[in-house]
Design a protein around this nucleic acid. Structure first.
Lengths: 132, 132
DNA sequence: ACGTTATTTGATTTATTTATCAAATAATCT
DNA sequence: AGATTATTTGATAAATAAATCAAATAACGT
């Protein structure tokens, strides 16, 4: 896993930290939990320390082995609950799209798609530049 | 991914189904969401259909692109309680607009303003014509 | 300080996700 | 039905998680 991805993960949430917090709160060792998981303890350590980006099912299994639900494991740091609260003024404006006719609506969204893909291209390019 | 793992996933939850439910409830296409995600649309399809076991960060990114928190994605059924009369699809495009940079956002809304005022002009004109 | 247990890290191999492109199928609209 | 759009599936290459074993640190109790 490269730094960019690790950064992206961190930007979202530190699931490893949540896992460790939950595990230690229950006085469990990595070995015990990993055993219950049928997962290698070394791999479990890497997950706790964010050295790897585990699969979703692995997170589910860990939650299960820790005796908590996925939501409990995760919810504390779900920062996007706030980030996604929509800007009201933007919402008002976007509601205007409703008044457009079909043809113009689709044109409008074509532009949105184009802008988003343009951004994607730009991100990809700048990423490629950083590789040099 | 072998059958055993796929079974294990199913035993826990069908996250792909939740994603699809959320996406369709918001009237978004795979293409749109995948674009916002900077993920291949084909891969997105495989995730929705449980053909692959996505990474945790991928699920986080999908939740973000869909404009919901992880918890809401996991409990995707809750979405329907907030569906109201107007066309939600427009509202939900906000998740995509949110990805744009400021400059592009304002350009985007300039175009919207232009389209809306054009329509108003047209309506006014046709109304005036009917007066004749 | 010593011994024991717990955790981290390294190195290597294997399994699987992801990216990409193409093509087939399904769904939708006129 | 025909056309257009959306989704699924296939094949292949590249990136990366997971399994395994070993060895180095760290943490902890006595």
């Amino acid at each position: 896993m490269n730094d960019e991805i690790r950064c992206a993960i961190k930007h979202y949430m530190n699931i490893g930290e949540q896992i460790k917090k939950t595990r230690t709160a229950k006085n469990l060792s990595q070995k015990e939990v990993a055993l219950a998981l049928e997962m290698d303890q070394a791999q479990f350590s890497r997950i706790e320390n964010g050295k790897t980006d585990p699969s979703f099912s692995t997170i589910e299994k860990i939650a299960h082995a820790l005796g908590v639900g996925l939501v409990e494991l995760v919810n504390a740091d779900d920062i996007f609950k706030e980030v996604n609260s929509y800007d009201k003024s933007i919402f008002e404006k976007l509601a205007l799209v409703d008044q457009l006719e079909e043809k113009e609506k689709s044109a409008f969204f074509s532009i949105l798609d184009a802008l988003v893909s343009k951004k994607r291209l730009k991100d990809t390019l700048s990423h490629a530049l950083n590789m040099i």
